[in-house]
Nucleic acid binder design. Structure first.
Lengths: 211, 211
DNA sequence: GAGGCTATCAAACGCTTGTTTGAAAGTAAA
DNA sequence: TTTACTTTCAAACAAGCGTTTGATAGCCTC
């Protein structure tokens, strides 16, 4: 084995662990996920997690990655369209990130899980991902409303949209039982996103024009 | 010790365990909650849970109680008001159940937690509580819309409302960090409920009149 | 008062968890 | 060849979990 190969193997092990960790964390949540399961999927030894990441917490920190969410924001911000259309596009892309088996961002799914069941990484997640997201969405919704909203009002508008979106991911076990035929295929996700967008845009415009 | 006192003590222990279990389950979730912590709060021996309920699962089954949710529906159904006002009232009462420290129904909070992190009791919860709730809300929203909605559309309307409501409960750790001043006092809960109601009624009417 | 039943208790059991250990194998530098 | 360093591995460790056990004491029935 040459040095390059060894390096390669080491890097490969590290990388395989991160990939496996994203799978398991996003599916089972941080607490329910076990180091043994992750190592099994990564075909690595149990001690590898502690050797490469210092522990389960360290692995989570490495598995987290805000790039997909930031990319979504970036794409949306540079969209040449009116606020309403950009809001629709945002919800559409966000839902595909959360639900689409093919395009899904496991990193975002891990974050979505963290919201309901916090870990020590929550502070970092809020600071680096959720707070900027709230800020961006808040300004976008301000444009939709056509007038500056109060801080609290703006936060509630954002919460209304995020709450709807996350419900489909975090309450999937329930929704599955309510409608056994439910499958999150491309068509269904588009329908859900369209519903949330139409529902929310009406809500924003109405509330903004009333208060 | 007389028989009555013994009976009483036994019943007291059982009852204290259920009360303590509701507290701990609603605060920490079923999985994170420990039998030892519950017994400690109930001032009971560790073996008491198994003796009285056959295990942690059995204690959860007894701690669950759908009466408060059913009562909310019953109250709302017999309300002498138009569909819009009944929807507002429903959201108002539901949010107080989920958030108000004084009026809160711990049983409902346990259920809210179960949505995100299912246990073996989820089937029972869906069957006995959530499905009827969805059905009732669906019909109510139908009246609001003024026309019969399709099954999928109706389900999405209900999901939009429940998603918004549950977000404030299940994502509290995040919202707390976004706004450190946030306190779920009576006034704040009323404001949140009013927002969700106004937001959602506008969404329903708009979507219903368009499609 | 003997036997049976109920309820409680301290202690221990068996299992799973994340983590640590010490040896082994390989490469690179001296 | 020796030395040092990196990576992997099987095994064990310590802690926490839900659960079980066997003893104890009180009350009822006979």
């Amino acid at each position: 084995m040459t040095e390059a190969e060894l390096r390669g193997n080491s890097e490969q092990t590290r990388e395989r662990l991160i990939v496996a960790a994203r799978e398991v964390f996003s599916q089972q949540g941080f607490q329910s996920a076990t180091v043994r399961e992750i190592c099994k999927r990564a075909e690595a030894n149990i001690a590898a997690v502690n050797y490469h990441f210092g522990g389960k917490d360290g692995l989570l920190a490495e598995a987290l990655n805000f790039a997909p969410l930031k990319a979504l924001q970036q794409t949306n911000a540079t969209l040449d369209a009116c606020p309403k259309v950009r809001t629709q596009a945002f919800i559409h892309d966000f839902m595909h990130m959360l639900l689409d088996e093919k395009k899904a961002s496991l990193q975002c799914q891990i974050m979505a899980r963290e919201l309901a069941d916090p870990t020590p990484a929550l502070d970092q997640i809020v600071r680096d991902a959720i707070a900027p997201l709230h800020e961006y969405l808040g300004e976008l919704l301000n444009e939709v409303a056509g007038r500056p909203m109060g801080e609290a009002e703006q936060r509630r508008m954002v919460s209304s949209i995020l709450g709807q979106c996350l419900y489909y991911r975090n309450s999937q076990p329930v929704l599955q039982r309510m409608d056994p035929k439910l499958r999150y295929d491309h068509k269904e996700i588009n329908a859900i996103a369209a519903h949330i967008a139409a529902f929310s845009l009406a809500g924003i415009l109405q509330v903004a024009s009333t208060n």
